[in-house]
Design a binder for these strands. Sequence first.
DNA 1: CCTGCTAGGTTTACTTTTTGTACTCAGGTG
DNA 2: CACCTGAGTACAAAAAGTAAACCTAGCAGG
Lengths: 173, 173
Amino acid sequence: MDTTADLFADRDTANCSIARTLEVVGEKWTLLILREIWYGSSRFSDLHRMLGCPRNLLADRLRTLVEHGILATETYQEEGARSRSRYTITAKGNDLVPAVLGLLQWGDRYRADPAGPAVITRHHGCGGTLSVQVRCEHDHHVRAAAVEAVPGPGFRTRTDPAAAGEAAPRQAG
Amino acid sequence: MDTTADLFADRDTANCSIARTLEVVGEKWTLLILREIWYGSSRFSDLHRMLGCPRNLLADRLRTLVEHGILATETYQEEGARSRSRYTITAKGNDLVPAVLGLLQWGDRYRADPAGPAVITRHHGCGGTLSVQVRCEHDHHVRAAAVEAVPGPGFRTRTDPAAAGEAAPRQAG
DNA sequence: CCTGCTAGGTTTACTTTTTGTACTCAGGTG
DNA sequence: CACCTGAGTACAAAAAGTAAACCTAGCAGG
């Protein structure tokens, strides 16, 4: 592998969508909060009881998720009770489902409880169990070794910030 | 939504494959280290240069990843140079690709550089761009709102640790 | 055989986050 | 009025992350 004359190896790693996503959801508890909301919790106290995390962190993470439009907060009032607030997931938040189910799938495969997974995900309607897959636009099932990374329009190098599209493809796996 | 009489809401959240996966790869820098290795780096110094992270953290994370079988380390020697060590990804590590591409896809969609994504992933061979999808065993494309979570064999409640399979399904979205 | 250079780390000192516990505040209840 | 609950804040202690210096082995040059 030629590293010295390789523009890809000189790319500006600050411009990375994985890193940008992790800035929002990569802190401790964040993805677990989303998990609880997907599983049905919506109130602060329920989330706190399910997660057992510090209350200030829960408040902080919820605030961050609402700021980024991943959660929405709404105030509601039940009969004879005072008004309370409830957190619900937005479409933007639901777009994290493939990533989180990818983590779930890996954990089920390599780190599950001896008895098996605690939770099984199914297709509501047909009941089939789920898997997270990488597909290309021609609907081929793409294995990890066949994933190729090439410079995109936002590509920049450290040395020459306008060097888009000049680097050679990189193949993972 | 009925929360009071809901066994799912009383489940033992410690038994979760998402949490178990995050115990291994959820610390800061870990997924970015894997990204660099997928993109072609393999040596300590290259990883350090690309990531700009503290050297002790890099050493620590690499050690953890090797311990968990996500990376393998090998010693090699070039002509007239002393032996060096190199990190490569294992099959177990490559099984994290769907999860990480899921994060990449979300970042490309919601937090990309104004110019566009820095890196594009393609299917090596056909060249088609990739997407991460949730599919059921009947090959239906499953939207987030149609993901249903049901208790699996490892399901346990806090109050009754042997209450598998008694809770009602939960539908995300 | 002394000096310097490089790869691959380790140590140490310092800063920031996370954690656990205590406290607040507002509205309804007995 | 005293008390409870939901939804947080505040703060000290512990853990994690950061930055930079230091270490060690092997090779090269003089």
